[in-house]
Simulated assay, not measured.
Amino acid sequence: MQYVVGTVAEFEEHRAKIVRLGDRTIGVFRINDEYYALRNYCPHQGAPLCAGKVLPDLTAQDDSQVDVDEKTWFVACPWHGWEYDIRTGQSYFGAHHPPARGYHVSVTAQASAPEVQGRAPGPYVADSYEVRVQDRYVVVDTSRRPDRPR
């Protein structure tokens, strides 16, 4: 099913607009003028995922320099801080951070998670949906989900 979720002008850069589509809420993100959608549900413990902070991938070379990767953006779960790649929904652990205690998860064979320097893929993947801009309207297609790693 396809839903018009607003005009391009209604979407702020690096922020989620949370919309209700049928019986679920979805966060639609505008990142560097591209659009992505994640289900507003953290697979870790059910928090409203898209209400979390949106941040780029940051790496520290030493105490004086921090590198910002403007191509990779995460949303951090507001409850426990789990970070999810906005493009794919894949969870990641930060560099030098032990994983949070999780639950047993069965994973079907799929392509591996994209590499993000200094991070290891976590066990969770948030639902993501295909988004396109048609004329000046942003459209979310909940029937088609991009291939996503697990």
Rank of each mutant, 00 (worst) to 15 (best):
M1L: 04
Y3L: 05
Y3N: 10
V4R: 00
G6C: 07
V8T: 13
V8L: 09
E12K: 15
H14L: 00
V19Q: 00
R20T: 15
R20I: 10
I26C: 02
G27N: 01
G27T: 02
G27I: 02
D33S: 15
Y36L: 00
Y41W: 14
H44V: 09
G46K: 12
G46V: 04
A47C: 10
P48Y: 00
C50E: 02
C50D: 03
A51G: 13
V54P: 02
P56A: 04
D57Q: 09
L58A: 06
T59A: 11
A60I: 14
K71F: 04
F74H: 07
F74Q: 07
V75I: 06
A76L: 08
G81S: 04
E83K: 14
Y84F: 09
I86F: 05
I86A: 01
Q90F: 07
G94D: 14
H96L: 12
H97C: 13
P98I: 09
R101K: 14
Y103I: 02
H104L: 14
H104F: 10
V107D: 13
V107P: 02
A109Q: 11
G118A: 05
R119Y: 12
G122K: 09
Y124N: 00
A126K: 08
Y129V: 05
E130N: 01
E130Q: 08
R136Q: 15
V140H: 07
V140S: 09
V140E: 06
D147Q: 14
D147C: 07
R148G: 11
